[in-house]
Every structure is written in C-alpha cells, then in structure tokens.
Design a protein around this nucleic acid. Structure first.
Length: 653
RNA sequence: GCCUGGGUAGCUUAGCGGUAAAGCGCGUCCUUGGUAAGGACGAGAGCCCGGGUUCAAAUCCCGGCUCAGGCUCCA
C-alpha cells in the first residue's frame, strides 16, 4: 500500500498494522480498533519502528511517525506503573496541603513504586505517617484527574517560584507550544502523564523512606529531598509487597553475617575491609576448593602474585592512566607502588617471562587474587562493595582461532557453578563500544565467536550493544539475589589490548610470531559479592558442604556426654565439621540454639541411643528420624556433601 | 565524594540535661533433662572520637570517624 505523507503505520501487538493519520492520538487508534478498547484506554506504550525502547504515553499522545503500539488498559501490566504515577501526584498534593512551601521537582514511577523529589521543605521519616494520612484522604475523595493543555508561556509563568519546573519547561519541553498539566481537586502538576482516571483508583499507598538525590542526578547540582513510596491496586497486594520486603531485610547478609559470626567490618580496621571470622572463612575455603577442582579439571595452572607492585607495571598495562583514581598508591624510597586493582597485569607478566610455542597454548593461569579498589566511600556496603576483595581470577592466553573452544569451556564451568547453587541468572553479550582498541577484523571474529558459542547453547541471551570493555567483547552472567537486585558476577572477557601492551607472542605452526588473545574469566566474580549473595539466597541456611558447622551432637544429659563425644569423633574422622552441645541446658534449649546457628543436622543422643548404638537425627527444617544407624547416617552425609546438595535431605530418604 | 538519618554491654534496643536500663547471649550454681526458651545468682558499658555550652552532657551545639538509605560509579 502506498501511503500518503499524512499517514503513519502503527503496528499492534498481534502483528497487524494500521495506517492512521499523522497526529492521531493513542486514544484515537484505540477507538478505531474498537469502542470498548477506546473507552478502557488508560495509556499507551509506543516504540519507534526499529527502536529498542518502549515509552509509556498518555492517551492524548499524538503519533507522528511509524510506531509499534500497545494499548494499556486496567488489565495491563503497565497499568500499575500508571497508577503509581498518579500515586506520586497524590503524595505531592498531600505534601503541599501540609507544607505549602514545598517545591516540586520530578515524581516518576519506578519498578517498585514511585518517588518524588522535592525542595524547600524539611521532612524526615517521622513525617511520613502524617503525609500518608493526608494521602489517604486524597484517595478517599476520589478526585478525577483532568488533563489540561496550556500554552508554554502560561506554564512558565505559573512556575515563577519553582525553578525546577521552569528548567523542565525550558529544556525537555522547549519545543512544545503547549504543555500538559494534570489537575485533581484544587491542585495541579506539570506532567506528561499518563494517569489513571481518578485518585480513587489508587487502592493502597505507602511511603517507604526519605532519601536525597541530586537535581538531574548531577552531583554538581543541589540535592533534593526524595521521598520513596509505592502503590498497588489493593491493600492485599501492598501487604504482600511489604511482606516480601520484610523477608528480604531479614536475609540481609550484614545481619546474618553477624548472627552467624561469619565476618565483620570494623571501624578501627577500616571501611570496606572485611575481616573473615573462622565460620566465614570455612565457607570461603569450600567455595575456593570447588573452583580449584574445576580449574584443575580444566587445565589451569595456579600462580600467585603479590598485593603490591611498582606503578611501572600499571603504566605498562594502562591502569595507571585509566584507573589511577581508584588505586591505592604510595611511595617507598622515592619509588611509587600501588596495591593491585586487578590480577591481569601480573599474570601477563608471568606469561611474558617465557617463550611460547603454539603447542603450549592455551596457557591458563588461575589465582584467587586479592585486589584493592578505592571505591567512593558512600558506595561501600557490607560485602557487596568493598575496598579489598578476592577474585577467582583466570587468565588464558589463546590463539585467536581457539577462542570459541575456550569460551565454551569457561561457560560450562560457570553454568556448573550457578546450577550447583540453583541460582537464576541471565546471560548477555556485550559488544564493541565506541571507544575501543583492536582491528575491525579481530573484533568481528571475536564477536561472532562469542555469538556462535551462545547460539549453540539452548539459552536465550541479550545483546548489549556497545557495552563491551574497550579491550574486547564479553559475556556477562547476571544473577538475582533475594532482594531482587541483579549482580554481575561470572564473566568471560576477550582482551586484545593487554597482549599488545605487554607485547605478548608465541611462535605459530608457520614459525612466525603471533599475538595471543587474552581471556579474562571469573566464575564467582568476587568472593565477597558471591558470598554476600549466597548468604541472602540461602538466608544463612547453607548447603551441607558449605555450612560452617555441619552437625551438632546434642547429649540429652550429662550421662550421655561420653557417647556424644564418641559420635562426634566418628563424624570428625570423616572430615565433617561437628560440635558437641555439652553444658547443662535442656535439650529444647540446645535444639533451639542449633536452629539459631543454622546447623543443617542435629544429632540427639541419650541412654537409649547409646545402648542401641544409634542416633536420633533432626534437620534444620524441623524434621526428625529416630533410631538411626550411625553408619547409615554417615553414608548419607558423605553423599550429600559430595553432591553438593542444597538442602539437607536425610529425613527424605 | 555529595545529601538525609543513625552510632548506648558480645547482640537487639530503652533512656534524650541530674547515680546508665532491659531482653538475648555469656559465667557459676541448682536442676539430670528426650527434640524451638526450667530456675537462681553473677560478670559485663571509655554511652563512636575530639572540642564547646552548662553547677551538671549519653542527652544540647560544632568538627571528625563510621554505619544505613539515596544520588553518581562498579566485582
């Protein structure tokens, strides 16, 4: 169909196409599909044809070019976002009723709710309840939201006491002749929408916390008070959300870490510098042993490099130029040294110390290397952001034609690791950024090699265009923790830069010198962050193989202490981490303590067991089995440990 | 780094100008126990650090350190 210049194409979710007059609104399109849909239209989602990003727009939004369009109605997922946007208005109205002097900046919906940035008012968490009460009144009153278009100049003059809104008008809305306001009751806000029909549609609201943010996210600008909140269609949904949030907080690794005596970060020893206590180090050792086994099976050689190097090394690697601000540097006898922020330059130096034939390659170095990065102070947080952390680093030196084999093998290792912990994850291919080193040819080959490795796997992945490192493309694995945060952990990165800088080479079959490609890889990422994530993922209930204390033997009374020791010795002899709960507390008390300490198995023994040579087994899920033959239990423990099973399952058998 | 709000016993918290409290944990004793809290007694605090105001500061003020939540950044 040849379409006139005044027509634009609209593609609908079912794949069909409509041709509509340029300038038609989302609502017009909805009505043209059906009057019912037109009636129900709350908003639209549009995406330029060929574009990546969907935009949520008001029904009044005029379509000026070819787009994909989804009509948002009360039944759409996006409806919640619209509703939360309205909730932000409800908040702002309530706030200005109580504090007329408050200046509004911006108040958008987010994935979890909404926020509103305000200025000129001093509020803290204690004020939220009062504002919430006022918000409920606004919701209760069920004011209709009316969209009003005003000329640009009229809008500017309405905001002569609010420079934030004026800035929005002079920047974002600079080209608009008319701008939209949303009016509810006697209150209004400059806003593009969309919004729900009336404040009563907001079923349940809750203000969550008060924080701050820079105007426009720029730290050179003044900071505004940001109030976070959330809203749902119903109270039930809100309650479920709050419950999830409480549970996530319960799992916070900083809390669990202290309760289980895993680690501490102390004021006198310094910020972002975790101290691992015996319990925490036990878990880390097990994690490390797991990687050591995988490395060993996969032909890695273990190396070790010091924590400090002359800065000459980082001038050579390029870190000194690109990373200096994040490095700990210091002078000794007129020479400058620095703590290492990465392990790769050390490993490249080791490789460079030898002469290599293509027959020797790939060379694979592994090191659990501690690195130091001076992150911004405000970023430090528990184990998730630290100044000192250990990477389960691997650096491979491979001929370009073997990249895909090596990447394949590394991905197998990573998937092995993640499935062992039953973690959900997503895979992304990050491609060449604008600023990069290396020839077009080698980038093309590297990307297509990574792509073909990914395509051969039965797993979807995203392509993050331009998100690769400047030295090469990479495959990132992102896993999700109990708080719903995504973390980048495992990674495979190709590097064409470091081999250049270190002038690395090997002799090929053709007796010519060739440049190897370096592959950086980490299975966990950093131990710190992975440990954090595991603590929260398991809520402290580590799988048997990781648990700091695996079995606790509980004698019912003093007369059974000897038998308890005997049982504990048997377990200890099999390499299990076992403790005996002696002392004169009652059995109930000891059991409770065992649960508090997240011990996978408790073994209760008294006279009955001693006489029969058995034990009574209880697991941390409150299940128990009596009259258990100790050898049967031991056999089970060995298997559960060896298979790295996630939950204690002896009582299942 | 910047903004807001915190730092009191090993832990969780109360106290908010006038002799530092409680629960848990810890120790001793009684109890000799049977699967998520038996009882009694006891030890344990430079109230983050440094200044200031005051007759008197854990408490009010200022500076610093540190933590939490954000903003910008990353494993």
């Amino acid at each position: 169909m040849s379409r006139s210049e005044r027509q634009v194409a609209v593609r609908l979710p079912d794949g069909s196409k409509l041709s509509v007059e340029q300038g038609s609104t989302v609502e017009d399109v909805a009505y043209s599909i059906g009057p019912g849909l037109g009636e129900d239209t709350v908003a639209g989602r549009v995406r330029p044809i060929g574009g990546d990003d969907w935009e949520l727009v008001a029904p009044e939004h005029a379509i000026r070019s070819d787009v994909a369009l989804e009509i948002v109605t009360e039944d759409s997922d996006e409806y919640l976002r619209v509703l939360r946007h309205t909730a932000a208005h409800v908040f702002a109205q309530a706030l200005q009723r109580l504090h007329p002097e408050a200046k509004l900046a911006i108040g958008p919906p987010t994935d979890d709710g909404f926020y509103y940035d305000v200025a000129g008012v001093d509020i803290d968490e204690d004020d939220l309840e009062e504002i919430e009460t006022e918000m409920e009144a606004v919701v209760e009153a069920d004011y209709p939201l009316e969209r009003v278009e005003r000329p640009h100049e009229a809008a500017v003059s309405r905001y002569d006491d609010n420079r934030y809104k004026r800035a929005i008008l002079s920047e974002e809305a600079a080209d608009e002749d008319c701008v939209s306001f949303y009016v509810q009751d006697d209150w209004e806000d400059l806003c593009r929408g969309p919004h729900v029909d009336s404040t009563g549609e907001v079923g349940a609201v809750k203000l969550l916390n008060v924080s701050s943010a820079y105007w426009r996210g720029d730290e050179d600008n003044e900071s505004l008070t940001r109030v976070y909140g959330t809203a749902f269609r119903s109270e039930e949904e809100l309650e479920a959300f709050l419950e999830r949030r409480r549970k996530a907080k319960e799992r916070d690794h900083r809390k669990t870490g202290q309760e289980m005596d895993l680690f501490s970060i102390q004021e006198t020893t310094g910020p972002g510098l975790p101290l691992y206590h015996p319990n925490g180090k036990t878990v880390l050792n097990e994690l490390r042993a797991f990687v050591d086994d995988l490395n060993d099976e996969s032909g890695y050689d273990v190396v070790e490099t010091p924590h400090v190097f002359r800065t000459e090394l980082w001038k050579k690697s390029g870190h000194y130029d690109n990373y200096e601000d994040d490095m700990f540097l210091f002078e000794v006898d007129d020479q400058e040294f620095g703590l290492k922020p990465m392990n790769c330059p050390g490993h490249a130096s080791i490789f460079d110390d030898g002469a290599w034939s293509y027959r020797d390659l790939p060379v694979r170095y592994a090191e659990h290397g501690k690195v130091y990065r001076r992150e911004q102070r405000g970023e430090l947080s528990g184990l998730s952001r630290t100044w000192a952390f250990t990477i389960d680093d691997g650096h491979l030196f491979v001929p370009p034609e073997e990249i895909d084999d090596e990447v394949e093998a590394i991905m197998d290792m990573i998937e092995d690791v993640l499935s062992t912990f039953e973690l959900e994850y997503e895979v992304a291919l990050a491609t060449r950024p604008e600023k990069s080193v290396g020839s077009d040819e080698i980038w093309e080959r590297a990307e297509s090699q990574l792509r073909s490795v990914l395509d051969d796997r039965d797993r979807s992945y995203e392509v993050e265009t331009g998100d690769g490192a400047f030295y090469g493309p990479k495959i990132d694995f992102a896993f999700e923790d109990a708080l719903g945060r995504d973390w980048d952990g495992p990674t495979v990165q190709l590097d064409f830069n470091m081999p250049e800088r270190f002038d690395l080479s090997y002799v090929g079959e053709d007796n010519e010198e060739h440049r190897p490609v370096m592959v950086h890889r980490a299975l966990y990422g950093s131990y710190e962050r992975f440990f954090m994530m595991l603590i929260e993922h398991f809520a402290g209930d580590f799988p048997l193989w990781l648990a700091p204390e695996q079995v606790r033997v509980i004698p019912v009374a003093e007369h059974s202490f000897d038998y308890a020791d005997e049982v504990a010795d048997r377990l200890d002899g099999e390499g299990f981490r076992v403790a005996v709960a002696d002392g004169d507390r009652t059995v109930g008390r000891k059991v409770r303590a065992g649960h508090d300490d997240h011990v996978p198995y408790m073994v209760v023994v008294g006279e009955d067991e001693r006489e029969a040579g058995t034990v009574s087994v209880r697991d941390r899920r409150e299940r128990e089995r009596r009259d258990v033959d100790l050898d049967d239990f031991l056999g089970h423990l060995r298997a559960e440990r060896a298979e790295k099973r996630v939950e204690p399952d002896f009582v299942d058998d």
